[in-house]
Structures are given as C-alpha cells and as structure tokens.
Lab assay of single mutants.
Amino acid sequence: KTEWPELVGKSVEEAKKVILQDKPEAQIIVLPVGTIVTMEYRIDRVRLFVDKLDNIAQVPRVG
C-alpha cells in the first residue's frame, strides 16, 4: 500500500498505528500542513501533514 486516504481527519496516533500495520518499515514524519519539503522519493518514508488540531490534513503517501 502506498497511500491512506481513509486517514484524513484522523489523529496522528491513529494514523501512525494504521500505517505501521501496513508498512512496518515506514519512517513516519509529522509536519504542519503547508510545510515545504524536499522532492526526493523514499520508499521507506511517509509524511503526515497535520492541521492545528494534529489531525491528518492531506492523504498520507509513501515518498
């Protein structure tokens, strides 16, 4: 699995749990929505963009 659209609106902790069940090797990085990030693709990275309430604001994707 490479993306988790069902996690939008969920808490960071809930999202981490689901992603690590699907992809145990994932390196999860939590960032505020709108953060500028590098464009290199990494198969072991999932970025979680969160709103001010620490809920997932964008679809988490591998990369």
Rank of each mutant, 00 (worst) to 15 (best):
L7V: 09
L7I: 04
N55M: 14
G9V: 02
M39L: 11
V62T: 12
E25R: 09
P32R: 10
P32N: 07
T2P: 02
M39T: 14
P5C: 02
D22R: 04
K1E: 06
L48H: 01
V62K: 01
V46W: 01
E13Q: 11
L48C: 08
G9R: 01
I56C: 04
L20P: 02
Y41E: 15
I36Y: 14
M39D: 15
F49E: 06
A15V: 03
T2S: 12
T38P: 14
W4Y: 10
R61E: 08
V18M: 10
G9N: 04
F49Q: 03
R61F: 11
V59D: 00
R45P: 11
D22S: 08
R61G: 08
A15R: 01
L20W: 09
V12C: 09
I36L: 13
V59W: 03
Q58Y: 11
K23M: 15
V12H: 04
G63N: 11
Q27K: 13
E40K: 08
R47G: 12
I19G: 01
V50S: 04
D22Q: 09
P5T: 03
E14C: 10
P24Y: 00
G34D: 11
P60N: 02
V62P: 05
L53I: 09
R47I: 15
L48F: 04
D44T: 07
A15Q: 01
V50G: 01
A57D: 05
V30S: 05
L20F: 08
M39W: 09
V12Q: 07
I28P: 05
R61Y: 13
K52N: 14
N55E: 07
A15W: 01
M39A: 13
Q58F: 10
D22P: 03
D44G: 09
P60C: 03
A57R: 08
V30P: 03
T38L: 06
L31D: 08
V8A: 04
V33R: 07
V8L: 13
E14H: 14
I28F: 15
P24G: 04
K52E: 13
D44N: 12
P32Y: 04
V12L: 10
E40C: 06
E3V: 07
D22K: 04
E25A: 10
Y41V: 12
